[in-house]
Structure formats: C-alpha cells, structure tokens
Design a protein around this nucleic acid. Sequence first.
DNA 1: TAGATTGTTAATCGATTAACAATC
DNA 2: TAGATTGTTAATCGATTAACAATC
Lengths: 208, 208
Amino acid sequence: MEKEISQAVIRRMPRYYRYLDELLDAGTERISSNDLSKRMHVTASQIRQDLNNFGGFGQQGYGYNVKFLHEEIGKILGLNESHNVVVIGVGHLGQAIANYSNFAGLGFKITGLFDVDPAIVGKEINGVEVHHIDDLEECLKDRNVDIAALTLPKSQAEKTARKLVELGVKGIWNFALVDLDELDNVTVENVHLSDTLMQLSYNITKKN
Amino acid sequence: MEKEISQAVIRRMPRYYRYLDELLDAGTERISSNDLSKRMHVTASQIRQDLNNFGGFGQQGYGYNVKFLHEEIGKILGLNESHNVVVIGVGHLGQAIANYSNFAGLGFKITGLFDVDPAIVGKEINGVEVHHIDDLEECLKDRNVDIAALTLPKSQAEKTARKLVELGVKGIWNFALVDLDELDNVTVENVHLSDTLMQLSYNITKKN
DNA sequence: TAGATTGTTAATCGATTAACAATC
DNA sequence: TAGATTGTTAATCGATTAACAATC
C-alpha cells in the first residue's frame, strides 16, 4: 500500500455512495462536485480531494458521470464482491439485522444465525435457520464467511470474537457494549448505539 | 456559551463514561489519566484535554476520583435528567430499541411506540402499547417527550420528523437511510448502520 | 518535604479549504 | 475556441500530542 487513506475519508465514502444512488434513481447522468456539494452540505473541494485519493473519476469541464462514479465507489467499498455474514446472538437486535433487506442489495448475505437459547435454536428467521453456537465451527466450514455481526451480551463478546477469527472471519461488526480493538488478524467496527444516544442527549442539553 | 466544544470531543465522552462505569463496577476508587490512557488506547494528554473542556475534575498528585468523574460526565451528557423517548416505526429495529433495557439505566425511558400497520397497532411491546401514528399529536400532549427514534422507511422520515418537531421533540435519533440535517429547531443524530457495514467492508478489502 | 499527576500552554501533526493551472 | 470543471498544490484551520510549571 502506497499512501494510507485516513478513516475520516473512509467514513464519508458510504455517504457519497448513498447520494449517488439517489441521483441514479432520479435518472441524473452527470454531476459536478459543486452541485453535489450543495446537496450534501460539504465543500466541493472536499469531494474532489476525497475522490482523488482513489483516482481521477471525473473529467474537466464535464464533472462526474453518476453511474460510473457510483460503481467505482462500490468497488472501493468492496461491494462488487458479495460477503457472507453470520449473526451471533439472535436477540431483538440480531433479528433486526437478519431481517434488514437493505443489506442484501449491497452484497451482504446473511448465511447463518447462532444463539445459545434453546427456545430460539431451530427456528427460522427470514429464511435462515438458527443454529446453536456450539455448532459454529461445523457450520462455518467451507462456507467462506467473512463478516460476523456480534449482537450478544458484552461478557461473551471477546471470547466469541476470538473463536470467529480462528474460523476465518475477517471482519467483526460489533454491537456488544465493549470495544474490541485489540484483536489480531481481524478488522473490527464497533457500533455503540447507546453512545450515539448519549451524544444526542448532550447536544440537546447544550442548547438550553 | 463561551467556548464551543468540538463534536470530536463529544463523541469520546460516552466512551469515557463506559470505562468509568467498568472501573466503578470493579471497585476502583481513583485513576490517573496515564492508567486510563493505557486501558482505552488513547493518549493521557487527550484525556486531560478533553476533560478540561468541561472543568477541572482531577487533583494533582492524585488523579481522578472514579465515582465523581463518572457522575460529572453523566451530567455533561445530560444523563442526570431523565428523557422520554418515542419510537416511530415499530419494525424489527424499532422493536429492538423498545426492548433494549440498557437505555433505561441511562435515563432514557420509552414512553410511546407508533406505527401505521394495523397488524401491530394495539399490541404491547415491553409493556408499552403501540399507537397509530395518527394519534401522535394527542399522545404527545403534556407528555414531555424530548427524543424520537425514527425507525421507519426513508420516504416517511422527513415528513414525520417535521411533525415531531412541531410537537415539541428536541432530538431525533434517526435510523432512516436519509440525512436529516437541514431541519430547524431540533438536534439530529443520524445513525446509518449500513454505512458502518460498508466501512467495515472497505477495511477488510483493503487488507488483502 | 518529595513524588505524583494535573491543568494548561506551546509545538506538531493532519485534515479541510482555497486557489488555480491543466484540460476536456 | 471559450467555458466549465477537474486534479492538485499551497494555505489555513483545527485537533492531537508534548512539555512543564503549578500544586496536591
């Protein structure tokens, strides 16, 4: 890898992807960084800088072709390849993820659900059977699962994460209320919903 | 307001709160910025800078009293007052939020659930009845609801958000796949789960 | 008192914005 | 060709880190 691209840039890419998706739906063929900047409430300069981290996708005097740019950003984000996802912990949040149809459209396919609760093991959610967590190893064999969503109590999170890494999982989408940053050989994305709620609470409180 | 505190700082506050909570559970009485920095994998300097945005909570030669600092950060985040929350859109994600017991411990109380689907209106989730969205105005009267979680399709998000603001809601915790940034008289926290999944996908892909 | 550790100022680093030459 | 708009360099701004005097 030549130049390291900052996470600040990466965080913005899915947002570009979304806006381009909307433009595509609206049948817009091309867009300038200036017009896009007005829609997205960011500077045109930032858009051009961000995109040029990955290559020159535009054309002087023309702007950016919406369809092409949408595809390219998709490739950058790895959406051109499909990803197999397992959900560990089939509580309410796990079920919400298993049922969220939007992910499929982005190339993320839920291929397995796991829990310890006998009341739910064996049931089917959105066409996928819930297995017991003890069958994890067997179920993941030759399945090419690269992402695991962790929606289980924090006490189980790290232990389970380590096991998943052993079984070849490359990315952990962590919803458990603990930071899983110090794990080797895996990429972790921590999503702490309660943190965002507290942020909101701060910003409301401040405005009094 | 004298000095504006950056969102970069605010985003870190809930994380401090969580680590202090753990220290509290473990019975730790005091902690230095240096020790905390090792646990959290941030610099001690950043911890001291962050905290000093809000006042001097420590003591030279001693460090920070865990219980006191935990309380103070709680106050900063507005957790000393309780917040009434309504959930708009009782799909899987809405139900997950309605059922998530952790929020109650932070002072966020789910006081209303709303949907348009007759199949779910009238049912009870975690002890709270689901009302029809048409009854929003009536239900919110004199209820002092300050936060609304939007877990509904993006096509309905903005319209519904405007109505909620009219009815006195101060903060919108938005899970719909659209950015609600240009609304007046309200604080918005956009939580786009699929964005974080794409970020994870990028970071996995990059490592090949 | 001596040691520890904060609060805070100064230095550094990185990210954002502005500007403009290149070019379609 | 003239106008538009990118790609990219330079300038600015803000956030992070280092350093250390103040002080418990």
